[in-house]
């Protein structure tokens, strides 16, 4: 349809809200057919970037091409190519699920028979057929989310923007949605999504951009991102009665190893070379600790995220709980 390699191309995008720098000189490109993710904490600027790309906000500066069309200064130019699923549902509470979908389809100029057929199809796909005649205002959170996603793809957009698609819904629904997103992508839709779930980004995305305070700090495939620490050896030790200042003693006695205590009763060991487990366990037990488990961990995206952004992963998890949990 579009003769272009990059479906989204952004250069030098900057946006202030008063004195707050929400987006700071951001560059990135999303290739045709790619599933690209923005991973970052609250307030990183993810929603602001989606709003700018989709025409709900003006940037201070920067250029934008979507589907090969220059949208700089004219956000309407490529709106027929894109579908948008906002972080909060923006459908009409007083309309039924079916009417909401038909109305959204009409906004894209679809004919009546076509929009009704498509609405029924999507209600079916999202498991909402039983609720199609109920008012949207009475839907549960997860149902709202699903219908909002259905509304975003009703006109079969070639590029889809998803702002935190699985935030605030239960585990099974989140898994179902991720499957649907993945299927859409396999069907040829280029997808740009934001999330603060590291595992979600890792599982879904072809490429990930880490975004913090309006800056993109790293962009790459999951495989490439974890490469620098892939060769490292990571060991997690579970220990009851953890002796006081054990981390200090360990560091002093094993200078080649890096020790951290990421949680209650946990000791984490990182090293360039394989770690001699027996030696460590004996050292801890001699000081009164009771080691119940010591196991090697494969370096994950989480480790590299923490390393690059300096944001503790469990900080992101806490945010997740605050917003209602998602996995």
């Amino acid at each position: 349809m579009i003769d272009e390699k990059s479906y989204i191309e952004v250069r030098g995008l900057t946006k202030h809200f008063g004195k707050v720098l929400a987006v700071a000189d951001v560059d990135f490109a999303v290739a045709k057919g790619e599933l690209f993710g923005f991973l970052g904490p609250n307030g990183a600027g993810k929603t602001t970037i989606i709003n700018i790309l989709t025409g709900l906000a003006h940037p201070d500066s920067g250029t934008i091409r979507i589907g090969g069309i220059d949208c700089t200064g004219n956000s309407k130019a490529a709106q027929h190519l894109i579908g948008v699923v906002p972080d909060e549902s923006n459908l009409y509470p007083e309309l039924t699920g079916f009417d909401n979908l038909c109305f959204c389809a009409a906004l894209y100029g679809m004919k009546k028979a076509e929009r009704q057929a498509r609405a029924r199809e999507l209600l079916n796909v999202f498991g909402l057929s039983g609720a199609s005649d109920r008012k949207f205002g009475g839907y549960s959170k997860g149902m709202k989310r699903k219908l909002t996603i259905a509304a975003g793809i009703i006109h079969k957009p070639v590029i889809l923007f998803l702002d935190e698609p699985t935030t605030g819904i239960d585990v099974a629904s989140a898994r179902h949605l991720r499957q649907l997103i993945s299927d859409l992508n396999k069907g040829g839709t280029t997808i740009f999504l934001t999330t603060h779930y590291i595992e979600e980004a890792e599982r879904l995305c072809d490429r990930i951009a880490f975004i913090v305070s309006g800056h993109i700090v790293q962009v790459d495939t999951v495989e490439h991102l974890v490469q620098p620490i892939q060769a490292r050896h990571i060991l997690q030790i579970v220990c009851a009665n953890m002796p006081q200042d054990i981390q200090k003693y360990l560091s002093a006695s094993f200078p080649d190893l890096e020790f951290t205590t990421p949680g209650h009763g946990l000791i984490r060991v990182e090293a360039e070379k394989p770690v001699h487990v027996g030696l460590l366990v004996r050292f801890i037990e001699e000081r009164g600790g009771e080691v119940s488990e010591a196991r090697r961990i494969r370096p994950s995206l989480e480790d590299i995220f923490v390393r690059i952004t300096g944001i503790e992963a469990n900080h992101m998890h806490k945010e997740k709980e605050k917003t209602g949990g998602g996995r």
């Binding site: 709900l56 309407k76 894109i82 923006n90 459908l91 906004l107 894209y108």
Partner: peptide, 15 residues
């Protein structure tokens, strides 16, 4: 206020 106006702004219709 309930954000459904955004849906209209996102549609490919001249303002």
């Amino acid at each position: 206020k309930n954000r459904s106006f955004e849906r209209l702004l996102l549609a490919p219709i001249p303002f």
